[in-house]
Amino acid sequence: MSRLGSYFIFLGTLFRNPEKFRVYVSLILNECTNIGVGSIFIVALVNSFIGAVTCVQTAYNLTNPFVPKNIIALIVRDSSILELAPTLSCIVLAGKVGSNIASELGTMRITEQIDALEVMGINSSSYLVLPKVIASVLMFPLLVIMAGFLAILGGYIAGTLAGVISSEDYVSGLRFEYKPFGVTFALIKTVVFAFLISTISAYRGYNVRGGALEVGAASTAAVTNSCVAIVAADFILTQLLLT
């Protein structure tokens, strides 16, 4: 409970007397490359296969001949957009980006780099953390859009190659009863997850005390705490926005 309190106090320090705006621009661009471009491969890989597996598995479970085949594509579409692409991608990103943020800040803490910033009179939390949070909130939605697209594509390729669905059925299924709000919902979730992952991981890393061992522990805690926050926020947002 007290940790939750100090997390909110930490969030407050991010916005208290920040540096000049132009300082942040290049830092944010840098982090966008790190966080965004650096994560394309793993997010693409995971989502293409998840889409493929969802398609084949759904086909395997739908044995009733009265259910039209294009339902398979509809299920792949809805589960990808609503849940798999945003939530699963963010779990993957918590592992990659979250642990990276925590270990980077933790190392800076134990090697006194954060102290060095502070004695120069620089607000170290906003200088170091804010660009990462902004970059995450900007880049995660782009990654998730790509993820959803690739999951549906993965399903198409796997489904047609395995012969469980024809390409006409797949395409007609994709277009059947399509609700654009699904995409909005996915992006809202992603922005919330991005904020949670980046701030929780930064909080963990920034407050490391000790040595290399503690940095490792903080990095692990960053990932597990982020995952818990993601599934909790996922549940709450689904309740709020879809019912």
Binding site: M108, T111, E112, Q113, D115, A116, V119, M120, G121
Partner: peptide, 14 residues
């Protein structure tokens, strides 16, 4: 603070 320079124990280079 602007008038201070500090050399930390581990150098603390970025």
């Amino acid at each position: 603070r602007r008038e201070m320079g500090v050399l930390f124990q581990g150098s603390a280079l970025f």
